[in-house]
């Protein structure tokens, strides 16, 4: 078994665009669920809109990468408004069903052959890297140490991803310590009480939905930046994985989503390297390598159940401040 390779891959995942993308999406979900109490089960839809918005803007409209990214975020904000205006008055579990259905509709619209010219249907979109890589401030070459050795282009993705994440964390952290965040948390606890105090609860929920949606779209863009946009990624499982990362770290915290995503991806990468290696070494004789790869998703499901039952506040959450109040 090649331990060096396994550990190196695992360590490398700490800085992977996937980890950063999940962290952004989970942070958006923290705004939705942890702070505003909105059961958004459609986070994959927001990520898809961000990623497709970016890719389509570059490929179909020939826009520069930064403008494309802004369009991706704006598209997600518009989606949040369209979804939020009619649905935010629904009861919690109804909202969950509406959002998951809306995310599926979004995915099916990207998948259908009817818009193949623009969306690439089942093949997805790729080859949108030109202007993004031209803007790279790093000279050509390979940098870094040990497992964190990447090409200039790979670093460019990671640096921008981390900068975006840092800004996002700062914004959410500031908001949640402000009176705005206080109103939002009040709404999570009891919407009617907050309305009775003269706050427009609906407007706050909508603002939270848009903010979280934009963060999730940023996550979708970072996730898709290094390679391609594929409709197979934005399935409901993606939503559930982001939820797992969020609940792992702590739903009503700012750094919990980051920690949760980090642990999620480090474990995923480790298991996806380690389990097949075990099979190869003949330690798990009743399993094929592909089965070993599937096993880690089973473990995600079991972990999600255990988390919700035994540690609903997450790693960084306050035991007293359980987020599941209803």
């Amino acid at each position: 078994m090649d331990w060096i390779q396994i550990l190196s891959n695992t360590a490398s995942s700490i800085l992977s665009p996937a980890t950063i993308g999940y962290a952004l999406a989970a942070l958006g979900l923290a705004v939705h669920f942890g702070y505003a109490g909105l059961l958004n089960m459609g986070i994959a839809g927001f990520m898809a809109i961000g990623a497709y918005g970016y890719a389509i803007s570059v490929l179909s409209f020939d826009l520069p990468w930064w403008l494309a990214a802004i369009i991706g975020l704006a598209a997600s904000a518009v989606f949040a408004l369209i979804l939020g205006v009619p649905t935010l008055r629904l009861r919690g579990d109804y909202l969950a069903i509406v959002t998951i259905a809306a995310a599926e509709v979004v995915r099916l619209l990207f998948l259908t052959t009817a818009f193949d010219d623009v969306t690439g249907s089942a093949d997805g979109l790729s080859g949108y890297h030109g202007s993004f890589r031209e803007a790279n401030l790093l000279p050509e070459g390979t940098y870094g140490i040990g497992p964190w050795t990447y090409s200039a282009n790979d670093w460019w993705v990671r640096i921008l991803g981390l900068v975006t994440l840092a800004i996002a964390v700062f914004v959410v952290w500031t908001l949640m310590r402000s009176p705005w965040g206080r109103v939002l948390k009040g709404i999570r606890e009891d919407e009617d009480a907050v309305r009775a105090l003269g706050k427009n609860a609906f407007s706050y929920k909508l603002q939270a939905l848009v903010l979280g949606g934009v963060l999730a779209a940023a996550g979708g863009i970072v996730y898709a930046l290094p390679s391609a946009v594929s409709p197979g990624v934005y399935v409901t499982s993606l939503t559930f994985f982001v939820w797992t990362a969020l609940l792992l770290g702590g739903a009503a915290t700012v750094f919990g989503p980051l920690l949760g995503s980090l642990i999620f991806w480090v474990l995923q990468t480790f298991l996806s390297n380690f389990l097949p290696a075990l099979v190869q070494a003949g330690v798990l004789p009743f399993m094929t390598q592909i089965q070993a790869g599937t096993l880690r998703f089973i473990l995600v499901g079991v972990a999600l159940m255990l988390l919700v039952i035994f540690m609903p506040q997450g790693i960084l959450g306050n035991k007293k401040e359980l987020t599941f109040v209803k």
Binding site: G92, D93, F240, L247, F297, G301, L304, M305, P312, F324
Partner: peptide, 14 residues
């Protein structure tokens, strides 16, 4: 109920 719903999601994945 919200927790139960998320437990069912975990069960579904597993």
């Amino acid at each position: 109920v919200v927790q139960l719903m998320i437990v069912s999601i975990g069960l579904s994945l597993a």
